[in-house]
């Protein structure tokens, strides 16, 4: 291995997959709230699944698995990269929000197992924090896209 010349990139198809994953997660995530049927969005042909809670629940889990795979790919590549790329400020903000989303999401997945009891206050806190982090990530992503800010830069 020649580490001094090796930096793992994020191929274009993976970028598209990442964007697709975020869209699936956002749609299926917001569909956990009873809004898509109320506001006719689920009436749009092809979007009826947004009003089926068990479908969106499974879609969210599948999206989460994809996200975890992509994040692990990026993190492993970043850790092994020579020279190791540095996170930009915009990258660090989005990475921190992603970590928060993943941690709260994993805790919510654990909560859904049979026999797992969490206090009502803790569940409310987790739910609210997960939603707040989603909104923050959406804003951070828009900010980064508008300013053409990168995730990493080379040292």
């Amino acid at each position: 291995m020649t580490p001094s010349a090796t930096v793992l990139g994020f191929p274009a198809y993976m970028k598209r997959l990442y964007a697709f994953t975020l869209v699936v997660l956002a749609l299926s995530g917001f569909a956990q709230m009873p809004i898509f049927k109320r506001y006719y969005i689920a009436d749009v042909p092809g979007l009826g699944w947004l009003a089926q809670y068990y479908v969106t629940h499974v879609m969210h889990y599948l999206g989460a698995a994809l996200l975890l795979g992509l994040v692990a790919y990026a993190v492993a590549g970043w850790l092994a990269g020579r020279p190791r790329p540095r996170l930009t400020g915009a990258g660090a903000v989005r990475a921190a929000l992603l970590v928060g989303l993943i941690v709260t999401g994993v805790l919510r997945v654990i909560k859904n197992f049979s026999g797992v009891y969490m206090s009502a206050d803790w569940i409310v806190f987790l739910d609210m924090l997960h939603i707040a982090l989603v909104l923050a990530y959406v804003m951070a992503a828009i900010w980064a896209a508008a300013g053409k800010k990168r995730w990493t830069t080379q040292p």
Binding site: Y61, A72, A74, A80, N112
Partner: peptide
């Protein structure tokens, strides 16, 4: 079904990290 998919969430990061390492090794060759 949802709870079974949780297993995929354990495997997904392993697969992602494995793919990255594999690609790095191939690139280094």
């Amino acid at each position: 079904l949802g709870n079974r998919l949780a297993a995929a969430m354990v495997l997904a990061p392993l697969a992602g990290a494995g793919a990255a390492i594999s690609r790095m090794m191939r690139a280094a060759q």
